[in-house]
Simulated scan of single mutants.
Amino acid sequence: MKKKLFAVLLMVMSVFLLVACSSKDDLDGEYYWVRDADYLQTMVTIKGNSGTIDVDGTYSITNIDTDKKQITVNAGSDYILPYSYNEDGSLTIVEDSLYGSSAKVTYYKKGSKALKEEVKKAKEEEAKKKNNN
């Protein structure tokens, strides 16, 4: 009886551990900036706790704090950039300190639902422009 109780208790604790770990953002991947439907540019690449970001030059991502939702970028100095991540695959980064002005940019993860929707939206906007001309 004690072994069964211990096994059930261990299983319950494992479920809580898995749920707690799964709530972290999985940022690994390539992220695109969508200029128009035919122009996707890789701007952010993340693997583990580091990567690169292309903002008027390519800079190293030296740390990602998923608890504080901050990305540290080394562009001569370390800049801490707040971010938000949606499970659909969109990553919005506040790049204020890199530009010296307010810049909130959304990038879309390769193969994500968000990227497909953004490209579709860009195609619809291009079609409207053609029809208006």
Rank of each mutant, 00 (worst) to 15 (best):
M1R: 13
F6I: 15
A122S: 11
S90Q: 09
K2S: 13
S77E: 13
V55A: 14
K129S: 13
D96Y: 07
Y79T: 07
D56A: 14
V44G: 12
K130G: 01
I46N: 10
E117I: 00
D38E: 14
V15K: 00
G111H: 02
M43E: 09
K109Q: 06
Y32P: 12
K68Q: 13
G100M: 01
A127Q: 04
I80G: 07
V34S: 05
V105H: 05
I53K: 02
S50A: 14
S97F: 03
K3V: 14
E124N: 08
S14V: 10
A75Y: 04
N131I: 04
Q41T: 12
M43Q: 10
G100S: 00
I93D: 13
G48R: 10
M13Y: 00
D25P: 01
V34A: 10
I53W: 06
L18K: 00
Y83M: 10
V8Y: 05
S84W: 10
G111L: 02
G89Q: 07
K47A: 10
T106V: 05
Y31M: 11
I46G: 06
D65T: 02
E126Y: 01
S84D: 15
N133H: 05
E117T: 00
V44P: 11
S101G: 07
S22V: 12
S84Y: 08
Y85V: 03
Q70A: 09
Y32K: 11
E124F: 02
I61M: 12
K121R: 13
T58A: 12
E87F: 01
A122Q: 05
I61T: 06
D65P: 03
S60G: 10
V105F: 08
Y32G: 13
K129E: 15
N133V: 08
D25Q: 01
S102A: 13
D67E: 13
L27Y: 01
Y31N: 06
G76A: 12
Q70V: 15
V73D: 06
E117A: 11
Y31T: 04
C21D: 06
V94N: 15
T66E: 14
L115K: 13
E124A: 14
L27W: 01
L115N: 10
Y108L: 03
K2N: 12
C21W: 12
